[in-house]
Every structure is written in structure tokens, then in C-alpha cells.
Design a protein around this nucleic acid. Sequence first.
DNA 1: CATAGTCTGGACTGACCGGTCCATTCCAGG
DNA 2: CCTGGAATGGACCGGTCAGTCCAGACTATG
Lengths: 204, 204
Amino acid sequence: MSRQLTAKGHSTRARIIEGAAAVLRELGVAVVTLEDIMARTRTSKSQLFHYFPAGKDELLLAVAQFEADRVLDDQQPHLGRLDSWAAWQRWRDAVIERYEKQGDQCPLGALFFQVGRSTPGARAIVVELLRRWQESLAEGIRALQAAGRLPAEVNVEQRSAALLAAVQGGVIILQTTGEIHHLRAALDQALADLRGGAEQRVRG
Amino acid sequence: MSRQLTAKGHSTRARIIEGAAAVLRELGVAVVTLEDIMARTRTSKSQLFHYFPAGKDELLLAVAQFEADRVLDDQQPHLGRLDSWAAWQRWRDAVIERYEKQGDQCPLGALFFQVGRSTPGARAIVVELLRRWQESLAEGIRALQAAGRLPAEVNVEQRSAALLAAVQGGVIILQTTGEIHHLRAALDQALADLRGGAEQRVRG
DNA sequence: CATAGTCTGGACTGACCGGTCCATTCCAGG
DNA sequence: CCTGGAATGGACCGGTCAGTCCAGACTATG
């Protein structure tokens, strides 16, 4: 990281990250070169190394963080307010829509596979993202419990972990096959089971 | 593909694929070079191009097919005989064990990201793998129905799709975080829900 | 307006790596 | 045992690309 950045510097740095993210989504991390990023962001090589002294890896890591932040942001405000079945449904719709739009581009997953194994930082970004994601889901389940819509015996930890896995699995299948069907099935089934289990308990 | 392969030729070709698969699992597809594969398999560059005339991509594709075949094989015989709850549990154990052993190496996923977007063949391999995988799960659910352990109204298609997504999600989380917890939670929850829904129906 | 530090341009380099080529050895069939 | 095709070894090539370097422009601050 550079020591001193002027306002102009900050905006250039941000422009590089956003442009790099865009070109990464289009071309894929395996193919992308610094030249591609330079062309897209209208910067020179010396600028790239000025703002990311450690080179390509540091830049890719910054892009990974940028993309990771977007993942949860794109699910708001629904993800942060899962206190009714209707809210869960809205969240489900938001997830479907977001990934339907994104299609088979996997900015974060691809980034992870590229930088991942080598750089510990990349793994940390993804781990933190998943942790916060699951925590939001767990919070939502607890909110349902608090509202009396789910029995207290529901295993929040296992439910939220399974829910997160369902989403991840649906997404990865979308990205490999191009079909959103599995994501939809996984989400609908998981929510139906969550609700079904509740009704079963409530009635019994 | 070469025209004529002697017995020796076949064994060398197989040796290359297996060695390449091993070194790919260790180093990751983004880093691996032909030199690495040559060193591991004790072959020369001319051999690589003799057996895979189209070069690195063709070799990686062959490795992808090799790995894809292993995925389902490793779940047998359980995956092919899901006709009782005990059988499903044995399958679940086999999956957990297989991926626990594999850890955070993702031979197939990584391969897909490398060759995937560019080569249509790679996507076809993964699509076919997922299709057969889900079909086996659907078959298992139908077997439970036939045995009277699940009501006929169970949506086989959605259940099997969600089940596949659960496994995939658990695996991808294992590979990014190194923790097998989510895979376990996803499988256990999915099976519990499948069974729970059944009991609910049977009792009601 | 002086100047020091930031910002930008772009030529250059050096290493790496996929792929080619030719020479040599091996081996199966006649 | 001859011979043609398969199998192998390894030198060499050419392109690519991350990273370096220096020169010059811009700008904030005193």
C-alpha cells in the first residue's frame, strides 16, 4: 500500500479496482493480464505498481475484497431483516435475482482459485464473508423464534449452516452449468423444510 | 488423439493422466506447468505432445474426465443402492469420508475454472457428472417411495436437486474454508428433513 | 513561486513456458 | 533380421507478461 494518497490518487485507485473487477468478470481470472486492466481503466503500468506495489496479487486481492463486500450488500436490506416468512421470501427472491443476473460469472470463486491457495489473505476474505453470511441467516432464524413462528428447539447452528450450503451449492451449479434451477430448488426446499418443521411442531 | 497405441503406449498415456491428476491436486491448476507433469510422470515433452497432440488443454481435459469418473466411483456402492434409510446414512458417511480425505483440494472445480470457460468440453464433463449424480439421488428417493418409506407426493425432482446442491455447497465451503462442518450440517439437515417430512405425512 | 512528493507514461528486461522439430531407440509383424 | 511406425529424448524457438526504471508532469503546501 502506498503511504500518501491525494484525492486524485484515491479515485484512480478506486477506478483501477472497479475496472479490474469488471474485466475479471468478463474474461476470467485465468486469462486476464495487466494489459487488459490497463486498457480498461486507462492507466499505465507504472500506475498499477504505484497503487499496488506488491503487483498483480495485491491488486487481485483488493478486487476480491471489493467483490466480497458486494455479495452481502446486494442482498440487503432483506438479509438484515429476516423476521417474518414474507421477509425470508423477499430475501430468496433477491438472491435468485442477483445470481440470475450474474449468470455463470463467478468473480469471487474464480479469484479464490487463482490467488487462494498461495495467498492466505484470499482465503481469509472468503471465510469472513461466509461467516457474516451465515450469521445473518442465523439471526433471521432466531428472529422467527422470537416471533413465535419457529419452536425454540430448532437447531439454529445446523439450520443456518445448511442454508448457507444450499445457497452456495445452488450458485456453484449455476456457474458450472448455467442453469439456475438448482439454486431455486435448493432455496425453496430449504425454506419449505424450515417452515414445515415449524408447522409440524406447532401442530403436534 | 493418436491413431495407434501399443500396450506400452496405453500404459504411458494412463501414467501421464494419473500423474498429472496428482500434481494438479497438489499444486493447483493455475500454477502447474508441463515441466511439473513431465517431472512427476518421468516423461519428456515429446511424449506429452505425442499422446495429447492438442497440447495442454487436451491433457487437462483428459484429467478432468478422469477425476469426474472418480467422483461417483468413490461413492459406490452406496450411491447406487439408496433403498433404505440405513443405505442413505451409509452414503452420507461415504461422502463425508471422501471429502474429508480430499480436504481443500478441488481437482475438478479448479480444472473447470481453468479450462471451463474457454473449452466447451470441460463444461460438458461437469454437467454430465452432475446429471448422473442427481439421477442417482432421485432414484434413491423413488426407491424409498416404492418401499413405502416416503409418500408418493414427495417432489422427487426438487428434492434431488436440493440434495445435490446441499452436497455441492458443503464441498465448496470445505474447499474454501478447510472446515467440513457445513458439509456435515447440510447432509444431516437434508436427510433429516427428507425423513421428517415423510414421518409427518405418514402419521398425519 | 518554490519544491518536494505524488502521479503518469512508456520503453525495456528477463524469465517462464507452451509448443515445434529432429534425431534416436524400441518393437511388432512379416 | 528387416523395416516401418510407434515411443522417447531433449534442444530450441517465439511469444507473452509481470515487473523495473527513469524521465517528466502535476499539485499541495508553505
